[in-house]
């Protein structure tokens, strides 16, 4: 039972199973985040006051976080590059850089939340803020999940096992990055 079934090793579509599954995960994630963003857009476009509300978000913090995520994306793709060359030491190091990036991202996010809530911009102030907390919270949840999975994968990689998983988690992490690339202008820049 501990052995993987033969099914897992087959690849009739030409895409390795793990990667194929990640593409489908992303497809389902696109509609989750996309649905949320579409709802936000509909409200945003016809509520004049949301433009003022958005002025209270901290552009500098958002920009810094974009930078952090882009950098961690670079790290995870370098980890994949190293894993392809079977350089496990380097791969683990880059995975940990990525996890560290996730930590920095969440720390900045925590600072933002604290400062916003202390100024009265809570989830209940207006639907803009409800969307703000829901969208960034859902995104943050994905960041934390990605960090946790990366930690588990890094333990395998250290032993030289399951190196193909570095690519899979990498693709997921890039997707989280892409979601932020869209949340950043939506919530922080367009005012």
């Amino acid at each position: 039972m501990s052995q993987a079934p033969i099914a897992t090793s087959r690849s009739a579509s030409g895409i390795p199973t793990a990667r194929l599954a990640v593409w489908w995960v992303l497809a389902s994630e696109i509609v989750i985040f996309g649905g949320l963003i579409m709802c936000y857009l509909m409200f945003r476009l016809h509520h004049e006051s949301w433009a003022y509300e958005a002025e209270a978000t901290k552009t500098a913090a958002g920009a810094f976080n974009t930078f952090v995520l882009l950098t961690s994306s670079l790290f995870v793709v370098l980890a994949h590059n190293a894993a392809e060359k079977k350089d496990t030491v380097k791969a683990v190091r880059y995975i940990w850089y990525t996890i560290f990036g996730g930590f920095v991202f969440m720390a900045v996010k925590a600072y933002e939340y604290t400062s916003e809530i202390s100024h009265g911009y809570t989830m209940f102030k207006s639907v803009f803020w409800s969307f703000y907390y829901l969208a960034t919270g859902l995104h943050g949840f994905h960041v934390v999940c990605g960090m946790f999975i990366m930690w588990m994968i890094s333990r395998d990689v250290k032993k030289g096992k399951n190196l193909h998983r570095v690519e899979a988690i990498g693709i997921y992490w890039h997707f989280v990055d892409v979601v932020w690339i869209f949340l950043f202008p939506l919530l922080y820049i367009a005012k």
Partner: peptide
């Protein structure tokens, strides 16, 4: 990011199509 980091540019076309369809 999708093309160069996720390697969609060298992936089978079906992955592009799937993601584009959801969009």
């Amino acid at each position: 990011v999708c093309a160069y980091f996720m390697h969609l540019n060298i992936e089978k076309k079906i992955a592009w199509y799937t993601l584009a369809a959801t969009l």
